[in-house]
Amino acid sequence: MTQKKQLNVSAIENGTVIDHIPAKSLFNVISILGLHKFDNLITFGTNMESQRFGKKAIIKIADKYFEKDEINRIAIAAPLAKLNIIKNYEVIEKRVVEVPDNIEGIVKCVNPKCITNVEAVTQKFQVIDKKNVSLKCHYCEKITDQEHMIYL
């Protein structure tokens, strides 16, 4: 009875692995993709040591492949994220996310006097800085930067 109990989070047979997520953005990525509503087997690890980020997070989603537009939505929270597409335990494709020119929904406008924070109006932004991710509101024209982003 000395068999060591081990939780196997390492490999998935088929699905998607999202790597290089900044640890602090993990739950934002989960909520942007709506993973909390999935029935698929999902494992994630966070606060893993990373040379690039300090602390990174990783998500593994079994039996799920994302469309490009769908996955690019996470770019504002994890602009350097990498995707591994897995089939039969093999990585068959690697992808990076692209920060889109415009985004709808996902985050709140930082301006409390903006119409999107007063009426039921879908947030729309122009991405004016793709590197540091800062967003210009289509309606009130105020800038929401990464530091002040509140995810919907």
Partner: peptide, 9 residues
């Protein structure tokens, strides 16, 4: 209107 972005909307 006092709310910013109201005219665009």
């Amino acid at each position: 209107h006092p709310i910013e972005g109201s005219a665009r909307y």
